[in-house]
Design a protein around this nucleic acid. Structure first.
Length: 390
DNA sequence: AGATCCCGTCACACTGTTTG
DNA sequence: CAAACAGTGTGACGGGATCT
């Protein structure tokens, strides 16, 4: 399930306003520069560097129109928190390290034997996926050549987007919507040098950052591999012949639809708006307000029916939704028959000053799971007791 | 076999600390 | 003092275990 587009960049026109050659690409590129690289970039263009990359927004709009500026940034975009640290770099231990040593070893100056190095994010792609990157990059470059912005055309975002070529197979580990927005330009820039090493490096970088951000910017495609074939709309006859499914909702209302009528699972989170869950969960509930993030043929589909909608169709998209859905289910169960005021009184925890605060989403789910576990154990004990005493 | 649950991992944002 | 580095909290997600 996607997160907010960007927590630290509220309100950015991302990614559609400027298109693949514009702001979105540059924004992501800068986002993945190390602070050192960003600092160098700012020096080169005489920009203030406050540490907050969003101050560069306006600059990026200009920057995006000059392809040559990119040359100075290629290659080398990395995420400073990824990869193996330099083991030879010795520095004075931080206070937190000293506290940890104290905690675990007691006496000061005693070092933890064979203390494991903090494990960093790993590249989990298979060799096949990595090998597929180069042909993919070459293909995308061919399909989406670089298009320089001009002042005459720069006001219309739609012109930035190259027309999608027919039946481009999906790149490894990448959502299809991104193929249409960000990927082509980056692939072009990387292969422009015609040096295979650069292509490899940049394509790997690009695949890395798209993969890393797939949950951030790709709002709907949970299982990208299924999408291309699923949305083949070459023949209307195919759609007409495809099987239908009928959903029985509250008050006997029936909705019949085909697979092609079902949109991808909406990018929705109730982590910050739990109280809205009952409004959209079940149309049999008095709290149902007649809306839902998912609509099929203009009919809002309450959350409770989503398994029926996605489990048997839409490839494996349900796999990506199910955990979130079960969390919602547990939350809704807990909220039923309780006012929101009572709910938050019950599900609160004191801070260090003893002040009560509503639990955050994850702790709340953990508390619910613990409470259910206790209740289930009581029930199991009761059942055991009854069985052994009769 | 499919549905559900549990648990660990990951990415990201944020904060605190150290370095140059 | 700004940048770099490191640690922590949070939400999302995947996969194995367990249940039906």
């Amino acid at each position: 399930m996607p997160k907010d587009v960007s927590k630290d960049d509220p309100g950015l026109p991302f990614p559609s306003e400027y298109g693949p050659e514009g702001f979105a690409t540059q924004y992501i590129h800068l986002k993945y520069l190390t602070n050192t690289q960003l600092s160098d970039h700012c020096k080169t263009f005489k920009l203030p560097h406050s540490g907050n990359k969003t101050v560069l927004t306006e600059h990026l709009k200009m920057f995006s129109q000059d392809n040559s500026r990119w040359e100075i940034l290629i290659p080398g975009a990395t995420n400073s928190h990824k990869g193996i640290r330099n083991p030879n770099k010795k520095s004075k231990p931080k206070g937190s390290e000293l506290r940890r040593e104290n905690l675990f070893n007691g006496a000061p100056g005693v070092h933890i034997a064979n203390a494991p190095v903090t494990e960093r994010s790993k590249d989990l792609r298979t060799a096949e996926q990595k090998a597929a990157i180069i042909p993919w990059a070459q293909r995308i470059v061919k399909q989406y050549p670089y298009q320089t912005h001009t002042p005459e055309t720069g006001t219309n975002p739609s012109i930035y987007i190259s027309p999608p070529a027919p039946s481009i197979p999906p790149a490894p580990s990448v959502g299809p919507a991104l193929q249409a927005t960000i990927k082509p330009t980056v692939a072009y820039q990387y292969s422009n040098s015609l040096e295979i090493g650069t292509i490899l490096l940049c394509a790997a970088f690009h695949t890395f950052f798209v993969h890393a951000n797939s949950s951030t910017v790709e709002s709907s495609s949970v299982t990208p591999t299924a999408d291309v074939s699923m949305h083949d709309t070459d023949g209307d006859n195919t759609d007409m012949d495809s099987p239908t499914r009928t959903l029985k909702m509250a008050h006997g209302k029936l909705i019949t639809f085909r697979e092609c009528d079902i949109p991808d699972p909406p990018a929705v989170s109730y982590a910050k708006s739990i109280e809205e869950l009952p409004w959209v969960w079940d149309d049999n509930s008095p709290d149902w307000n007649g809306t839902s993030p998912l609509s099929i043929n203009n009919t809002p589909i309450p959350l409770v029916y989503w398994p029926t909608v996605y489990k048997y169709w839409k490839g494996t998209q349900w796999k990506g939704v199910k955990k979130t859905w079960f969390d919602w289910k547990i939350l809704f169960r807990a909220m039923s028959g309780m006012s929101m005021e009572d709910f938050w009184v019950h599900f609160s925890a004191p801070d260090k000053f003893g002040q009560l605060h509503p639990l955050k989403y994850t702790p709340l789910l953990a508390r619910l799971a613990a409470e259910w576990k206790v209740a289930d154990e009581k029930l199991a004990d009761l059942a055991r007791h009854e069985l052994t005493n009769h």
